[in-house]
Write a protein that binds this DNA or RNA. Structure first.
Length: 284
DNA sequence: CGAGTTACGCTTCTACTTTC
DNA sequence: GAAAGTAGAAGCGTAACTCG
């Protein structure tokens, strides 16, 4: 892979900048700015490269990121999609916004922030572009919009600057009227969020197939997954179907075999019971 | 105590762009 | 970091129980 002089220059300065930088506060952009002041030139065309280098540095330390061989790291240069450093977030990974952690409830009545000129442009242009070229993916359209924006003359841009000014006023007005929700109301929102979570997949009620209803033989015609699992395991134990040599396995008795589509005496991994039960649960 | 298994609805994140 | 747009991927939550 070819490395141009610019990249060599970046490699020469970036390690030092990174060592001194406060990574809690720095962003790729602030680091790029610092580089630019060192090299006395714009590095806009190299921002992806810089981002990749910073990411390598954070991951593996300076040695890997700035290999002196003059060879660019493999990740850079081309279609590689994985492992990109975040564009605008602080360079140091955020600690608490991990995946799966439920996001803190936001006040839904809080005014949306003011849109800049570019966002106004995107708002107008994106739906049209999508209609013109329905096959373009979301990122494709974003790229195209960036391209159009950069090549737009000041006259056309002025329209969106005006829109942005208007939105600023909108924001100001809304902010003046805005009354933040009190603690009680916020707590109500949090409670709602918890409820939604608790009502997740396993709580959903299903209609039992006739075979499953016959298996229960107690008038049960609706059940959720949680209850079903409990009852099936109770049945395994009640009838002594668990394999004593490995109690993760179960032997089907005639009754089970009949509606699970196996032979009496078949041995199966108890955990996989869900797979056999699936055909017997019908959405309400 | 964690891994291993199953289902699937819900939530969160990612992809990308620029501006303020 | 939030603002717009959205499809699709990934992760969580849960029950059950055993084994290393």
């Amino acid at each position: 892979m070819h490395v141009d002089n610019l990249e060599v220059a970046i490699n020469a300065h970036l390690p030092d900048i990174l060592r001194r930088a406060d990574l809690e506060k720095s962003t790729v952009k602030t680091l790029q700015k610092e580089l630019e002041s060192k090299l006395l030139m714009s590095l806009d065309t190299k921002k992806n490269y810089i981002r990749d280098q910073i990411e390598m540095y954070l991951k593996h330390g300076a040695r890997h990121a700035f290999a002196d061989s003059g060879e660019a790291p493999e990740q850079h240069g081309g279609a590689g999609k994985r492992g990109k450093a975040p564009r605008k977030r602080t360079v140091e990974k955020k600690k608490k916004s991990g995946r799966g952690k439920t996001k803190e409830v936001q006040d839904p009545t809080k005014p949306k922030g003011p849109k800049g000129p570019y966002m106004c442009f995107v708002g107008v242009r994106r739906p049209r572009l999508k209609q013109e070229k329905p096959t373009l993916s979301f990122p494709d359209i974003s790229r195209q919009l960036g391209l159009e924006w950069r090549s737009m003359n000041a006259e056309t841009k002025a329209k969106y600057v005006k829109m942005s000014e208007k939105d600023k006023t909108r924001y100001k007005n809304e902010l003046e009227k805005y009354v933040p929700l009190n603690d009680h109301e916020m707590e109500k929102l949090r409670e709602k969020q918890r409820e939604r979570k608790a009502a997740g997949g396993l709580q959903v009620m299903y209609k039992c197939s006739p075979e499953l209803a016959a298996f229960f033989n107690d008038g049960t015609v609706q059940i959720n997954r949680k209850e079903l699992t409990t009852r099936i395991w109770a049945y395994f134990k009640e009838k002594g179907l668990l394999d004593d040599s490995n109690r993760r396995y179960v032997f089907a008795d005639a009754k089970l075999a009949a509606f699970l589509g196996m032979q009496a005496g078949d041995r199966f991994l108890a955990f996989t019971i869900q797979r056999f039960l699936k055909p017997h649960l019908h959405p309400l």
